[in-house]
Design a protein around this nucleic acid. Structure first.
Lengths: 332, 332
DNA sequence: GGCCATCATGAAACCGGTTTCATGATGACA
DNA sequence: TGTCATCATGAAACCGGTTTCATGATGGCC
């Protein structure tokens, strides 16, 4: 593995000049540059990443903190992040936190200790203040979450809009008794979706019935349990908005077991447009998020921050409704 | 950010001693150690990762090369890898190759240039020789693939066994005309599954009919197309072994469209036990791989290699059959 | 008491880049 | 022709650890 000094010796220049040629920003005499470049390719020189990092105090890589690596859409997000970052010759370090605040903080510390140039954080459990404090010390982008004080650092979906779209779709089909199986309401995404549900009902002049709103945890089982609770209450529900596709799937499992026909007796809308939702029978109507665009924006914003550039204004991403087979007009 | 020299000054020792206390392997006088430790915690000292890497020529991190980050089970694999590695205080760098040999090679080079201490490679497109050559220069573990020359470096599923289990299950139910929708046969996993199919048929004294074997590419659409082709051939097929769950799902979609009842008219077995397979209707019988155990073994083997230890003998992981609703005895 | 092995420790070299500062060359301008 | 700005380049300091080698202290043994 040749060093910069060997290259310099071969080209008959000093290491400093080789360094200047490598980064290409400072002007170097054309003929000197050619000699150096020849030496570089002759020796197959590649700069030592450690030495470079030590001297410049930059890693050339960013960290990704993620709550649930095995979550339904992390693959799509990571794929785009990785591709965008690698194009900029920036590497991606991954640490996971499993949705517990303490372990997420550990993950952050782990990456900070590695001297990452910046951080992309996709964490449920960390507090808003922790994140905005972090943003003050490190280039930071927050994924799938909005923290007001650092809005331009946040890449998030307009969940209120998504909840609204789902509910409005059911209203337009004629439903008037619409229940809502939410995610954990201390999480912003779940709360936003519920707010959209309320707004849609409000626009139709319908007062929300709290007995029709059941909090779950975004996991399948809670969809099943929530639906059980809902049925037990004996309300005249004709449609359900689920917190996400997993919960919708859980609900569908229960409904099938109880012999309740979807969508004939009960309509259902999910959220997230997971791969699976297209395959279940009947296929699940749901809300789609432009994850790839969001991930690309996240990577680009982080690169700007790392470069010291100012961020463009904050922007939320808009979800869209995917109509499939779980929604039909209510029976009269 | 305090340096080792500041700690040394405060503790009244030399930087060398602080360094020795930090790694804890060389004996240090108990009282000196206590003083140094006090200084470390008083200053909140954390060693600079760059300097450490430069001096010791080790990154303290390993690279993961992955063909398809968004693939159906990468989440589960990465989760376990990350957790196991982080326990050893080793960070994880990720690069993806998208299933093209050239880009996978680029990903490998990218990580090698970052001076990773080792590499976990989960790549379809790279050649066996490339991998065994790489193993000679870098601590290397190959995931989900067997390369004979570096067998102990490989973590793989016994796909032949999986194919056998799927086929035998159908045979035991009384099926005698079993088709096979395979993945791309140049890939080892697809070829292994097909070999298991052949072995099971052989044990039952049935000669395989090449018209019943259709090659696809592990993606849903190829399941649909394969099934179309199969039906068009008008063979007396009563059951199908699919290359993976995605292909099985594609086949189910087509069968539903054609009004062919699963499992009454046609039985179906998938492979991979994706989250989705439990939710489709009827739920998909499939083959389960112990991915978490495999990932943990991969991480542990890599850590051994990095530490310079010898590897334990190679071991393949055994898949299991998950019986659900897509298999029934053939109609008489 | 003298000699040698053992042990803890410090001084300094080293890893391989980047960056600052000094220098010599070149050319413009009066 | 003399002076000063400009430019390309080199020397050397620097980043912050690790590691080698030397040294001084301690103690066991004859």
């Amino acid at each position: 593995m040749p060093t910069i000094r060997e290259v310099a010796a071969r080209a008959g220049v000093s290491p400093a000049t080789v360094s200047r040629v490598m980064k290409g920003e400072v002007p170097v005499n054309a003929e000197t540059r050619a000699r150096v470049e020849a030496a570089i390719s002759a020796l197959g020189y590649a700069p030592n990443a450690f030495a470079r990092s030590l001297a410049s105090n930059r890693l050339g890589g960013v960290g990704l903190v993620i709550s649930h690596l095995a979550g339904p859409f992390m693959g799509r997000v990571m794929m785009t992040l990785e591709a965008t970052l690698r194009q900029a010759n920036v590497s991606l370090l991954v640490a996971s936190g499993g949705g517990e605040a303490e372990r997420e903080q550990e993950a952050v510390d782990f990456l900070i200790n590695r001297r990452c140039d910046g951080l992309i954080v996709h964490a449920d459990a960390l507090a808003d203040e922790t994140l905005s404090a972090l943003a003050a010390t490190t280039p930071l982008v927050v994924f799938n979450r909005r923290v007001a004080e650092i809005e331009a650092h946040c890449i998030y979906l307009d969940n209120e809009c998504g909840g609204y779209l789902a509910t409005r779709h059911l209203l337009e089909q004629g439903h008037r008794h619409i229940a809502c199986l939410t995610g954990p309401l201390k999480q912003q995404d779940a709360a936003g979706r519920l707010a959209g549900y309320h707004r849609a009902l409000g626009e139709w002049g319908i007062e929300a019935d709290t007995r029709m709103i059941i909090e779950g945890d975004f996991v399948e089982g809670s969809g099943e349990r929530g639906m059980t609770t809902l049925l037990a209450r004996g309300l005249p529900v004709t449609a359900v908005v689920a917190g996400n596709d997993d919960m919708a799937l859980g609900a569908m499992t229960l409904l099938r077991a109880r012999g309740i026909a979807v969508p004939q007796t009960l309509s259902l809308v999910g959220y997230d447009n997971e791969a699976c939702s297209r395959h279940v029978v009947p296929s699940l109507s749901t809300i789609h998020a432009p994850l790839e665009e969001m991930a690309q924006d996240a990577a680009e914003r982080l690169l700007m921050l790392v470069a010291g550039d100012a961020l463009p204004p904050a922007m939320s991403f808009t979800p869209t409704l995917i109509e499939r087979e779980t929604v039909a007009p209510p029976k009269v």
